[in-house]
Amino acid sequence: MSGSGGIATLADHKRRRVEELIARTSEAGGVSLIRDAGRRLLRNPTAVVGAAIILLFLVIAIFAPLVAPHDPVQRFPELTRDLTVDHIPGATAGHPLGSDPLGRDFASRMIYGARQTLFVGVLATLIGLLLGVLLGVIAGAVGGRVDMVVMRLTDVMLALPSLLLAITLVALASRSTQWTVIIAVAVVNVPIFARLLRGSMLAQRESDHVLAARALGVKRHDIVLRHMLPNSLTAVIVQATLTFAVAILDAAALSFLGLGDPDINRAEWGLMLGVDGVRYFEVRPELAYFPALAIILVALGFTLLGESIREALDPKNRR
């Protein structure tokens, strides 16, 4: 092999190697934030566990009639027969978790409870989040007097203990339904979301990149919605995952106080834990254990997933 030929081959080889590298890096850089976040979520065991838990409960909730062994409101003679104030039958053939205090199939009620509980928790959190974000954006973006009024309003709401505020709201409704509970729990969370968002919006308003956007003549609503809001959402997303668990418990507390839906057939974990679980704890503690465990698991699932979503959405974590 001649000297010059060797050099040419080497240069060729190097050039090919560089092109290869460029091709590979281009590929890595060419992924959108959402898709990239999704990919990283799948690789994160915490996220997968969280998502699996939520998915499991979602499937149970959606297919409750198929999963549940019995009708959740039917009272079974074989259960009511042994039912006394001091005794609630445990597991028997056909009733894996035994009876509830009214002789209904406890397992089926737990399964149908997933429906009610997820519905109340998710909806209350979402409504609270939406209203809170709306108020927070208005206060943070407009500032001045509007900001003052909104913030004093949240001060008043935060000054009252949350449950007391929820009770007041439910009491305002002429007739208690599931919706009054959802709305009450949602409203209680509004000031928390509003304050969080307003705080980060204010920080964003003073930031250099917002000044730069203004120097480019970007319109006001675009500055608020494209530049300030997306940079302010992180704290609110985390708060929402935590709120979910609290919302379920708040709803349960309202039911426990007799302010929930008066329908005794309604199967909801919070209600089951707060009413039957507490009343019959010494007779049959499982009536409290199972709903409590279910609530904790779902809340855990949301928290795990929420935290991982936050991490994944943070562009600084892109690799």
Partner: peptide, 11 residues
């Protein structure tokens, strides 16, 4: 400051 003048969450 070129870093803080760019929006961190927008490509």
């Amino acid at each position: 400051d070129p870093l803080s003048s760019l929006n961190p969450v927008i490509p």
